[in-house]
Measured scan of single mutants.
Amino acid sequence: PDLGLTQLFADPNLIENLKKNPKTSEMMKDPQLVAKLIGYKQNPQAIGQDLFTDPRLMTIMATLMGVDL
């Protein structure tokens, strides 16, 4: 199971919303991170391994779920 990750990354406004959010806007200036996020739309399971190697993803996930870290 993808634990709902498919829906989190399926939002067509995902990148724009993250660019507008004060907690994630600075991160979204990294083209490699943006490319990763776009890739998760097609393969949400890929985030599982990346969560352990890129701490920014935890902040992004929390933001998408509405959790304040």
Rank of each mutant, 00 (worst) to 15 (best):
Y40M: 10
L5S: 07
V34R: 03
I60N: 00
L18E: 00
N43R: 06
M65D: 04
P44S: 05
Q49P: 13
D30M: 01
M27R: 00
L69C: 08
P1D: 10
L5R: 04
L33W: 04
Q45T: 09
D11F: 02
I47Q: 06
L64W: 03
G39I: 09
I47R: 01
P1E: 12
L51V: 13
V34I: 10
P31A: 09
P55G: 07
T59R: 05
N21D: 10
Q32E: 12
Q7V: 14
K29V: 04
K19M: 14
G4R: 09
L8I: 13
D2H: 13
M27Q: 03
F9Y: 04
D50A: 06
A46Q: 12
A10G: 10
Q49C: 09
L8M: 10
D50P: 03
R56K: 06
G66T: 10
L69P: 11
F52L: 15
G4C: 09
L8T: 05
I15Y: 03
N13L: 08
M65L: 14
T24N: 01
V34Y: 04
M61I: 15
D11G: 06
A35E: 13
M65Y: 07
R56C: 05
K41D: 03
P12H: 07
D68E: 06
K29S: 10
G4D: 15
E26W: 03
E16Y: 07
L18F: 02
D54K: 01
L5E: 05
L18S: 00
K19E: 14
G39F: 12
P44M: 04
A35T: 11
K36F: 07
M28F: 02
P1H: 12
T24V: 06
G48A: 13
M27G: 01
K29L: 08
K29H: 09
N13C: 07
M27K: 01
K20Y: 05
M65Q: 07
G39P: 01
T6K: 11
P31E: 13
N43P: 02
E26F: 07
A10T: 12
A35H: 10
P55N: 13
A46K: 09
F52W: 13
M27H: 05
P1L: 12
K36I: 14
P22Q: 05
G48P: 10
A10S: 13
F52D: 15
E26K: 05
G48E: 13
D54T: 01
N13R: 08
T6R: 09
L5A: 10
D54V: 01
